[in-house]
Design a protein around this nucleic acid. Structure first.
Lengths: 343, 343
DNA sequence: TAGAAAAATGACAACGTTGTCAATCATGTC
DNA sequence: GACATGATTGACAACGTTGTCATTTTTCTA
């Protein structure tokens, strides 16, 4: 049994190939009877249109690309799931493109990808979505795209974006700790490459400010979005004369490092030390105690990004509108009121 | 600036399009001078061959598919990374295809995928790789594929496979606990859908046997590859009159559940209870104590699977040879000798 | 140096689909 | 019943590439 083409269907249904094409593409002006005949033939032959031929001939595109560079498995899978769910819904294909954001030829690589694979456009995850130079090149090549970003004021050459309000959520987490009674709250920074890092810091900063707590610079530690930096940062903090009673790690992985360091130091979390993360990764649910964190809803965010991209292509609306998501505070067992002063 | 095609290159290099095609495809019999001229033109025009046109015309395929249904983010990312690294090396594209292994039309869906997207073949992850009915249909449709499996004797219709020796590794883990001095070692099962579950159990079983330890059926608990089942299973075990001193969870997620249950019950891991998992997921490294586990090297496995698939296509060797990987025991802080009997 | 073999090159069809445009058919109007 | 109108259908080119096969050029042999 060989593979059926549109010609085979046309022959069997006794119509022209163009008519079959019309039925497949749900174009108007096909009579009821003809459509039925064609559908019957398609069914009998188990015909499926060839994607290469289709995208070769047609100006329309039938796939989008998802571009990311992020070592975080859970985040990426969520992105993929979100984008893919929309793609399946709307009959689009998905081309994943993990890459190295620091690689020099990246812009070129992406324009090539779009061109060679006839992609309708790209969904860009951080940190690529926040790289002005990259965006400029893509814009010059007129590559349609939607950005997933974490800072509102981020310049984007007029590109549509899905904005995840990290600052707001970081504020909530800090506020939560303050309301528990903490005043010595440490902050562990995430990677400098990500726009989300300063955003989360700003949220932390302004919560302290709003509650009249002066920021102690010794409690603010630089680092990357990694377990090891969390571990190391926590040890530095423990060694202080006046150590913090709460630590806010810029993401769950950092918080995991802090948790490990706390346990290694014999500290009882949350009674000796409160810990919060950011992301609502599986780790945050499965650790003991489970981590207080901010739920990012990455899947939903990705879904919206994909939908916006496709809508933009089809509707052709020139107004690059943005959408905003605010991660939601999730309180779990890793945060509690500080121990009352010994006496 | 519009997009350059092979014609533009041919015109600029003053040769026929066929010659350009030959240069691109690195065919023999192109003179040195001509090749240089063509390459120059390609460079100047930033020409990149169109993948649709290429795969439409040519019988060769330029992409493979990766099929999985697995809720485990880390596992999937590793698979993707492994397969993708080979694809990039050899100039292939990758089509990911997450799916539901229990869905009725799956076989059809996969043959469609291969046909419509001109895929050269598929890499099948568990549990699809272990479903005889699915394999039968794919075999009938002559879909080239390589399976990633966890049981040697698994029938596969002559398909090549990469075999991960879960039984062996489970034996090692159990042996490790026995050598620490444990005799009451519990086993928490993984999902029934996965062939790996009975394999891991068999490894556990035969280690006990080899060391002359009689298996206590009360210490063997059914479940799925999930945190919750680990948590619940552990609580059941703790409630026994004579509880285990060590628990072997069929994967790291189960072990995470056990760890949480232990902490909730006030048990000190590893001194009151040893715990081991399976997979070497990030969790196992980041929990406290870090989990003793078996490193699956999924990335390497995936890389080999992809390489085998592509080699099979190109070499056309009919002998479906298999490859075997044995996960490696990783001893971390979650296992220790049992407490000496209280006196 | 003629002739043969081998290497290099090109003309053209073909892959399976959709776009363009013309042709045919059905329907309604007077 | 002739004509206009709009709905339905089909013939054919085109998308950008590679496969086939013929032709030209170069190299080797005697």
């Amino acid at each position: 049994m060989s593979i059926a083409t549109i010609k085979d269907v046309a022959r069997r249904a006794q119509v022209s190939i163009k008519t079959v094409s019309r039925v497949i593409n749900q174009e108007a002006s096909v009579s009821h009877g003809t459509r039925a005949k064609v559908l019957k033939a398609i069914n009998e032959l188990q015909y499926r249109p060839d994607l290469s031929a289709r995208s070769l001939r047609s100006a329309k595109a039938y796939a989008i690309g998802l571009v990311y560079d992020n070592p975080n498995a859970h985040y990426i899978i969520s992105l993929q799931q979100g984008v893919l769910s929309v793609c399946r819904e709307l009959g689009f294909g998905l081309q994943i493109h993990p890459c190295d954001s620091t690689q020099p030829g990246l812009a070129r690589q992406l324009t090539d990808l779009v061109q060679r694979s006839h992609l309708a456009g790209l969904v860009l995850a951080p940190p690529m979505s926040e790289d002005p130079r990259l965006l400029k090149v893509l814009s010059e090549h007129k590559v349609p795209l939607v950005r997933i970003i974490s800072a509102m004021e981020d310049p984007g050459d007029g590109y549509a974006s899905v904005y995840v309000d990290d600052r707001d959520a970081a504020y909530d987490i800090t506020e939560h700790m303050i309301q528990l009674g903490h005043t010595r709250i440490a902050f562990l920074w995430g990677g400098k490459q990500h726009r989300s890092s300063p955003e989360r810091f700003k949220g932390y900063e302004s919560a302290l400010q709003d509650y009249g707590i002066e920021m102690d610079k010794k409690l603010v530690v630089p680092g990357d979005y990694s377990f090891d930096d969390g571990f190391r940062g926590a040890r530095k903090l423990f060694a202080l004369k006046d150590p913090p009673t709460a630590i806010f790690g810029s993401n769950d992985e950092i918080a995991a490092g802090v948790l490990a360091a706390a346990r290694a130091a014999g500290l009882n979390v949350p009674y000796d030390l409160s810990i919060a993360g950011f992301e609502d990764s599986p780790f945050s649910r499965q650790s003991w105690p489970a981590l207080t964190t901010a739920r990012q809803a990455t899947k939903t965010v990705a879904r919206h990004a994909a939908r916006m991209l496709i809508a933009e292509l089809q509707g052709g609306s020139e107004t690059a509108h943005n959408e905003r998501f605010s991660p939601e505070l999730v309180v779990r067992g890793s945060t509690a009121p500080p121990r009352p002063p010994q006496g």
